[in-house]
Protein backbone atom coordinates (compact mmCIF):
# COMPACT_ATOMS: atom_id res chain seq x y z
CA UNK A 1 0.00 0.00 0.00
CA UNK A 2 2.84 2.32 0.87
CA UNK A 3 4.37 1.74 -2.53
CA UNK A 4 1.21 2.78 -4.27
CA UNK A 5 1.20 5.96 -2.23
CA UNK A 6 4.81 6.62 -3.13
CA UNK A 7 4.10 6.11 -6.81
CA UNK A 8 1.23 8.45 -6.52
CA UNK A 9 3.41 11.01 -4.87
CA UNK A 10 6.15 10.68 -7.44
CA UNK A 11 3.88 12.31 -9.94
CA UNK A 12 3.43 15.86 -8.67
CA UNK A 13 6.43 17.17 -10.61
CA UNK A 14 4.70 16.19 -13.81
CA UNK A 15 1.45 17.78 -12.79
CA UNK A 16 3.13 21.03 -12.01
CA UNK A 17 4.99 20.97 -15.29
CA UNK A 18 1.69 20.50 -17.09
CA UNK A 19 0.76 23.95 -15.94
CA UNK A 20 -0.45 25.53 -12.69
CA UNK A 21 -4.04 24.89 -11.70
CA UNK A 22 -6.42 27.68 -11.11
CA UNK A 23 -7.89 28.16 -7.63
CA UNK A 24 -11.31 27.20 -8.92
CA UNK A 25 -10.16 23.82 -10.10
CA UNK A 26 -8.68 23.17 -6.65
CA UNK A 27 -12.06 23.32 -5.05
CA UNK A 28 -13.37 20.56 -7.22
CA UNK A 29 -10.61 18.08 -7.90
CA UNK A 30 -7.96 16.40 -5.88
CA UNK A 31 -4.55 17.86 -6.58
CA UNK A 32 -1.30 16.13 -5.94
CA UNK A 33 1.20 17.87 -3.73
CA UNK A 34 4.15 19.43 -5.53
CA UNK A 35 7.70 19.44 -4.17
CA UNK A 36 9.16 16.81 -1.83
CA UNK A 37 6.60 15.83 0.80
CA UNK A 38 8.53 12.68 1.66
CA UNK A 39 11.96 12.31 3.14
CA UNK A 40 14.40 9.50 3.94
CA UNK A 41 14.74 9.65 7.71
CA UNK A 42 11.10 10.22 8.54
CA UNK A 43 10.08 10.49 12.19
CA UNK A 44 6.42 10.82 11.36
CA UNK A 45 4.83 9.58 8.16
CA UNK A 46 1.31 10.60 7.28
CA UNK A 47 -0.47 8.89 4.41
CA UNK A 48 -3.84 9.79 2.85
CA UNK A 49 -4.92 11.72 5.91
CA UNK A 50 -8.48 12.98 5.78
CA UNK A 51 -10.06 14.82 8.71
CA UNK A 52 -13.75 15.51 9.05
CA UNK A 53 -15.66 17.74 11.43
CA UNK A 54 -19.05 16.02 11.30
CA UNK A 55 -19.87 16.30 7.56
CA UNK A 56 -17.27 18.94 6.71
CA UNK A 57 -13.96 17.69 5.44
CA UNK A 58 -11.18 19.83 6.87
CA UNK A 59 -8.16 17.92 5.50
CA UNK A 60 -8.02 16.22 2.10
CA UNK A 61 -5.56 13.39 1.38
CA UNK A 62 -2.46 14.81 2.98
CA UNK A 63 0.76 12.86 2.46
CA UNK A 64 3.68 14.32 4.35
CA UNK A 65 6.80 13.10 6.09
CA UNK A 66 8.36 14.85 9.04
CA UNK A 67 12.06 14.13 9.19
CA UNK A 68 13.93 13.38 12.39
CA UNK A 69 15.53 16.45 13.97
CA UNK A 70 14.16 18.89 11.49
CA UNK A 71 12.02 21.94 11.94
CA UNK A 72 9.14 21.91 9.52
CA UNK A 73 6.87 24.93 9.21
CA UNK A 74 3.24 24.61 8.19
CA UNK A 75 1.99 27.80 6.55
CA UNK A 76 -1.18 28.81 4.81
CA UNK A 77 -4.15 31.18 5.05
CA UNK A 78 -6.54 31.05 8.00
CA UNK A 79 -8.82 28.04 7.99
CA UNK A 80 -6.59 26.06 5.65
CA UNK A 81 -6.38 23.12 8.06
CA UNK A 82 -2.79 23.45 9.20
CA UNK A 83 -3.72 23.49 12.90
CA UNK A 84 -6.13 20.62 12.41
CA UNK A 85 -3.38 18.63 10.70
CA UNK A 86 -0.97 19.44 13.54
CA UNK A 87 -3.46 18.21 16.12
CA UNK A 88 -3.87 14.87 14.38
CA UNK A 89 -0.20 14.18 15.09
CA UNK A 90 -0.72 13.77 18.85
CA UNK A 91 -4.42 12.92 18.71
CA UNK A 92 -5.49 16.16 20.36
CA UNK A 93 -8.44 16.00 17.97
CA UNK A 94 -9.74 13.09 20.05
CA UNK A 95 -11.10 15.64 22.51
CA UNK A 96 -13.45 17.02 19.85
CA UNK A 97 -16.45 14.70 19.64
CA UNK A 98 -17.40 15.39 16.04
CA UNK A 99 -13.86 15.06 14.71
CA UNK A 100 -12.97 11.97 12.64
CA UNK A 101 -9.53 11.10 11.26
CA UNK A 102 -8.92 8.73 8.32
CA UNK A 103 -5.65 7.52 6.89
CA UNK A 104 -2.38 6.44 8.37
CA UNK A 105 -0.17 8.40 10.72
CA UNK A 106 3.00 6.54 11.65
CA UNK A 107 5.34 7.55 14.43
CA UNK A 108 8.60 5.60 14.01
CA UNK A 109 6.67 3.30 11.68
CA UNK A 110 3.88 2.59 14.17
CA UNK A 111 0.31 3.66 13.47
CA UNK A 112 -0.82 6.02 16.23
CA UNK A 113 -4.52 5.63 15.47
CA UNK A 114 -4.82 1.91 16.22
CA UNK A 115 -6.77 0.75 19.23
CA UNK A 116 -3.54 -0.50 20.75
CA UNK A 117 -1.97 2.93 20.79
CA UNK A 118 -2.57 4.78 24.03
CA UNK A 119 -3.09 8.53 23.49
CA UNK A 120 -1.59 9.24 26.93
CA UNK A 121 1.67 7.52 25.95
CA UNK A 122 1.58 9.15 22.53
CA UNK A 123 1.26 12.64 24.03
CA UNK A 124 4.21 11.96 26.29
CA UNK A 125 6.24 11.25 23.12
CA UNK A 126 4.72 14.04 21.03
CA UNK A 127 4.45 17.20 23.11
CA UNK A 128 2.54 20.33 22.22
CA UNK A 129 2.85 24.08 22.71
CA UNK A 130 -0.30 26.08 22.12
CA UNK A 131 -1.11 29.37 20.49
CA UNK A 132 -2.04 31.17 23.68
CA UNK A 133 0.34 30.63 26.60
CA UNK A 134 -1.58 28.38 29.00
CA UNK A 135 0.43 27.77 32.15
CA UNK A 136 -1.36 25.98 34.97
CA UNK A 137 -2.53 28.24 37.80
CA UNK A 138 0.25 26.80 39.94
CA UNK A 139 3.81 27.77 40.79
CA UNK A 140 6.49 27.95 38.11
CA UNK A 141 8.13 24.88 39.64
CA UNK A 142 4.91 22.88 39.69
CA UNK A 143 4.17 23.82 36.09
CA UNK A 144 7.41 22.27 34.91
CA UNK A 145 7.31 19.38 37.39
CA UNK A 146 3.75 18.37 36.50
CA UNK A 147 4.61 16.25 33.45
CA UNK A 148 7.51 14.37 35.08
CA UNK A 149 5.34 13.79 38.17
CA UNK A 150 2.37 12.24 36.40
CA UNK A 151 4.61 10.08 34.24
CA UNK A 152 6.88 9.13 37.15
CA UNK A 153 10.03 10.20 35.30
CA UNK A 154 12.10 10.98 38.39
CA UNK A 155 12.84 8.91 41.44
CA UNK A 156 13.22 11.59 44.09
CA UNK A 157 12.95 15.28 44.85
CA UNK A 158 16.51 16.20 43.92
CA UNK A 159 16.21 14.48 40.54
CA UNK A 160 12.99 16.39 39.95
CA UNK A 161 14.68 19.64 41.00
CA UNK A 162 17.46 18.96 38.51
CA UNK A 163 15.00 18.17 35.74
CA UNK A 164 13.02 21.35 36.41
CA UNK A 165 16.18 23.44 36.37
CA UNK A 166 17.44 21.75 33.20
CA UNK A 167 14.12 22.26 31.40
CA UNK A 168 13.86 25.89 32.43
CA UNK A 169 17.47 26.45 31.36
CA UNK A 170 16.81 24.85 27.98
CA UNK A 171 13.78 27.08 27.58
CA UNK A 172 15.97 30.09 28.38
CA UNK A 173 13.87 31.03 31.39
CA UNK A 174 15.89 29.80 34.34
CA UNK A 175 17.96 32.95 34.84
CA UNK A 176 14.82 35.08 34.94
CA UNK A 177 12.85 32.98 37.42
CA UNK A 178 15.40 31.10 39.53
CA UNK A 179 14.66 33.22 42.61
CA UNK A 180 10.90 32.82 42.43
CA UNK A 181 10.21 29.25 41.40
CA UNK A 182 7.25 29.14 43.79
CA UNK A 183 5.63 32.25 42.32
CA UNK A 184 2.53 31.56 40.21
CA UNK A 185 3.27 30.79 36.56
CA UNK A 186 0.32 32.94 35.54
CA UNK A 187 2.07 36.00 36.97
CA UNK A 188 4.81 35.96 34.32
CA UNK A 189 4.76 38.09 31.18
CA UNK A 190 3.26 36.62 28.00
CA UNK A 191 6.63 35.72 26.48
CA UNK A 192 7.86 34.22 29.75
CA UNK A 193 4.63 32.24 30.06
CA UNK A 194 5.12 30.78 26.60
CA UNK A 195 8.71 29.81 27.42
CA UNK A 196 7.40 28.27 30.63
CA UNK A 197 4.99 26.22 28.53
CA UNK A 198 7.91 25.12 26.34
CA UNK A 199 9.92 24.21 29.45
CA UNK A 200 6.92 22.24 30.71
CA UNK A 201 6.75 20.37 27.41
CA UNK A 202 10.45 19.53 27.20
CA UNK A 203 10.49 18.38 30.84
CA UNK A 204 8.62 15.29 29.68
CA UNK A 205 11.45 14.76 27.14
CA UNK A 206 9.26 14.14 24.11
CA UNK A 207 10.63 13.12 20.74
CA UNK A 208 8.52 15.54 18.74
CA UNK A 209 7.25 18.99 19.73
CA UNK A 210 4.21 20.42 17.98
CA UNK A 211 3.91 24.19 18.10
CA UNK A 212 0.64 25.83 17.15
CA UNK A 213 1.48 29.47 16.32
CA UNK A 214 3.56 29.73 19.50
CA UNK A 215 4.46 33.39 19.00
CA UNK A 216 1.26 34.81 17.59
CA UNK A 217 0.18 36.29 20.94
CA UNK A 218 3.61 37.78 21.70
CA UNK A 219 5.42 41.03 20.98
CA UNK A 220 8.44 41.08 18.60
CA UNK A 221 11.06 40.80 21.35
CA UNK A 222 9.37 37.83 23.00
CA UNK A 223 8.89 36.34 19.54
CA UNK A 224 12.60 36.67 18.78
CA UNK A 225 13.38 34.81 22.01
CA UNK A 226 11.01 31.99 21.11
CA UNK A 227 12.55 31.70 17.66
CA UNK A 228 16.03 31.61 19.14
CA UNK A 229 14.82 28.87 21.44
CA UNK A 230 13.40 26.83 18.55
CA UNK A 231 16.78 27.03 16.81
CA UNK A 232 18.43 25.56 19.91
CA UNK A 233 15.78 22.92 20.51
CA UNK A 234 16.06 21.44 17.02
CA UNK A 235 19.29 19.71 18.03
CA UNK A 236 17.37 17.45 20.37
CA UNK A 237 13.82 17.45 19.11
CA UNK A 238 11.82 17.17 15.93
CA UNK A 239 9.68 20.28 15.69
CA UNK A 240 6.53 20.93 13.71
CA UNK A 241 5.52 24.56 13.84
CA UNK A 242 2.37 26.17 12.52
CA UNK A 243 2.82 29.84 11.84
CA UNK A 244 1.07 32.77 10.23
CA UNK A 245 4.28 34.67 9.85
CA UNK A 246 6.23 33.78 6.73
CA UNK A 247 9.30 35.55 8.06
CA UNK A 248 9.14 33.32 11.11
CA UNK A 249 8.87 30.21 8.95
CA UNK A 250 11.83 31.42 6.92
CA UNK A 251 13.88 32.07 10.06
CA UNK A 252 13.31 28.85 11.98
CA UNK A 253 12.50 26.01 9.59
CA UNK A 254 14.40 23.79 7.19
CA UNK A 255 11.35 22.66 5.31
CA UNK A 256 8.06 24.41 4.70
CA UNK A 257 4.69 22.95 3.80
CA UNK A 258 2.01 25.14 2.29
CA UNK A 259 -1.64 24.26 2.98
CA UNK A 260 -4.60 25.65 1.10
CA UNK A 261 -8.27 24.83 1.73
CA UNK A 262 -7.46 21.58 3.49
CA UNK A 263 -5.01 20.40 0.86
CA UNK A 264 -1.26 20.22 1.05
CA UNK A 265 -0.18 22.22 -2.00
CA UNK A 266 3.57 22.33 -1.86
CA UNK A 267 6.40 21.09 0.32
CA UNK A 268 10.04 21.95 -0.11
CA UNK A 269 13.22 23.34 1.38
CA UNK A 270 12.30 26.60 3.08
CA UNK A 271 14.71 28.62 0.91
CA UNK A 272 13.21 27.21 -2.23
CA UNK A 273 9.60 27.78 -1.12
CA UNK A 274 10.21 31.41 -0.31
CA UNK A 275 12.48 32.29 -3.24
CA UNK A 276 11.21 30.05 -5.98
CA UNK A 277 7.80 28.48 -5.26
CA UNK A 278 6.68 25.96 -7.85
CA UNK A 279 2.93 26.17 -7.42
CA UNK A 280 0.97 29.21 -8.40
CA UNK A 281 -1.04 29.22 -5.15
CA UNK A 282 2.12 29.11 -3.06
CA UNK A 283 3.56 31.97 -5.03
CA UNK A 284 0.41 34.03 -4.63
CA UNK A 285 0.38 33.43 -0.88
CA UNK A 286 4.07 34.15 -0.42
CA UNK A 287 3.84 37.36 -2.38
CA UNK A 288 0.87 38.42 -0.27
CA UNK A 289 -1.88 38.36 -2.85
CA UNK A 290 -4.16 36.50 -0.45
CA UNK A 291 -4.08 35.01 2.99
Amino acid sequence: MNEAVLNDLAEPKNTSQAGPETEASLNIEYTNTVGQPLCDEAKIQTRDVNVFYAENQAIHNVNLDIGAHEVIALIGPSGCGKSTYLRTLNRMNDTIDICRVQGQILLDGEDIYTKKQDPVLLRARVGMVFQKPNPFPKSIYDNVAYGPRIHGLTRNKSELDDLVEESLTKAGLFQEVKDRLDAPGTGLSGGQQQRLCIARTIAVQPEVILMDEPASALDPIATAKIEELINELKQNFTIVIVTHSMQQAARVSQRTAYFHMGRLIEVGETDQIFTNPTHELTEKYITGRFG
Binding site: N90, M92, T95, V120, L121, L122, R123, A124, G127, M128, F130, N134, P135, F136, P137, Y146, G147, I150, H151, C197, R200, T201, V204
Partner: peptide, 9 residues
Protein backbone atom coordinates in the same frame (compact mmCIF):
# COMPACT_ATOMS: atom_id res chain seq x y z
CA UNK B 1 -6.26 24.46 30.74
CA UNK B 2 -7.59 21.04 29.74
CA UNK B 3 -5.54 21.12 26.54
CA UNK B 4 -2.40 22.00 28.47
CA UNK B 5 -2.82 18.98 30.72
CA UNK B 6 -3.86 16.60 27.94
CA UNK B 7 -1.00 17.84 25.76
CA UNK B 8 1.45 16.83 28.46
CA UNK B 9 0.05 13.33 28.50
Amino acid sequence: LREAALGLG
